[in-house]
Design a protein around this nucleic acid. Sequence first.
DNA 1: GTGGTCTAGACCACC
DNA 2: GTGGTCTAGACCACG
Lengths: 130, 130, 130, 130
Amino acid sequence: MIIQIDMAADIPIYQQIRNQIVLGVAMGKMKAGDPLPTVRQLAGEIGVNPMTVNKAYGLLKGEGVIIMDRRNGAQIHRLPIEGDAMDLDFDQRMTLLISEARIKGASGQELKERIIQLIDRIYEMKEVVS
Amino acid sequence: MIIQIDMAADIPIYQQIRNQIVLGVAMGKMKAGDPLPTVRQLAGEIGVNPMTVNKAYGLLKGEGVIIMDRRNGAQIHRLPIEGDAMDLDFDQRMTLLISEARIKGASGQELKERIIQLIDRIYEMKEVVS
Amino acid sequence: MIIQIDMAADIPIYQQIRNQIVLGVAMGKMKAGDPLPTVRQLAGEIGVNPMTVNKAYGLLKGEGVIIMDRRNGAQIHRLPIEGDAMDLDFDQRMTLLISEARIKGASGQELKERIIQLIDRIYEMKEVVS
Amino acid sequence: MIIQIDMAADIPIYQQIRNQIVLGVAMGKMKAGDPLPTVRQLAGEIGVNPMTVNKAYGLLKGEGVIIMDRRNGAQIHRLPIEGDAMDLDFDQRMTLLISEARIKGASGQELKERIIQLIDRIYEMKEVVS
DNA sequence: GTGGTCTAGACCACC
DNA sequence: GTGGTCTAGACCACG
């Protein structure tokens, strides 16, 4: 599991770390119970301040994606995590994304095909849920 | 076209204004050539500083969504927006959105149905681009 | 001689009018002594405020491109007009233009070929100078 | 890299700052990865409000010339700038520049020689893009 | 420390 | 009237 940070992006680094771990879990690269590197280890690898990694882990813990244990460090939580999968926030962000594509000229059919393709790629790995 | 601002949200106000106008255009509430409220007018209505609205309009102008006319204020651009409709940024944001839904337990089928529903709702209004 | 105005452009309308007349003169579409439409006429044709056209004519008069006569209206002045053809302002604007092209990846050779092509097109009409 | 501002010029200050940095990059005074002064630093040096410098940096960021890094301030972008080097805007500005020179009496030959001289001066520094 | 955001208030160019 | 620019000063998120 390699974390790639884009220092030029507008997205805060701690958010990028959080996002990449979410992606890793959803695509089956990391499974429930798998250990995460320690804060210092990961911070050293990607060259950021340990406080930044700590903040990302805190976010993930708050979301229920990981559990932090004083003895074993952090590890992926049992899945699925709590919360409605497709809540208001999901709809709003999805609607905005589709709208931006529409005003750039995408057709509804193009969009559907592309998104189905992306979903299939993510769900390629069966049984992510523990 | 009413702009609703959530002062408590962590999304910057100028970004919220920009998003709502993009949504309005994509869903056909605003058509090419339609006038937008003036900077001062909109600022007064939603109770923010004109500079904040100005920044939102500047963003939209940079994206090619609106044009700023010294005589008539701003209006929706008549030319199609430049840029690939489904670029790398689109894929990344979409992949993240789908991944978040998956780890909350959504099935691939559920996701496809929901997203197709959202797309159909947005594309209900035919011919947004004049 | 048709004047085309781009209301969406950042360039002020009076400046656009001035520029197009300069282009028309340089490319031989208008010669010394040719009459320009009256302020009201041109304003009506392109749908702008007469004050705007008036300002453009004032600019051109100040530069020596046209002369304004109460009886005959405005007409193109005898060419060439006064002033160093390649002054400091020319060098600065040209340097900026070339620099912008360079950072977008243009090679020196590409630039020279393109510019020579543009010069030849403009100088196609022999003997603009009266 | 010293930025010189002409407070009396009719070009906005933020535009002057942007232009000088573009020139600096194109002429090799600044290379990819080189740090720019911080917003507050530069604002202090040239005696303007930080917001003005911020606007200039925002422009350059939007153009892909620089990246803004929360840790190290701004620096020259390492990737080539997107966009056609010689687009419609380039042609129009170049045509206007040549036309203005022609009506002041410049010959096509004079122009070609002068412009080639300017290009060679700018491209003196090999390999600006890292 | 940095940049990001927002405010209040001002003056100017354009039309 | 409009938007464009600039200032002074403030608070916050990020690292």
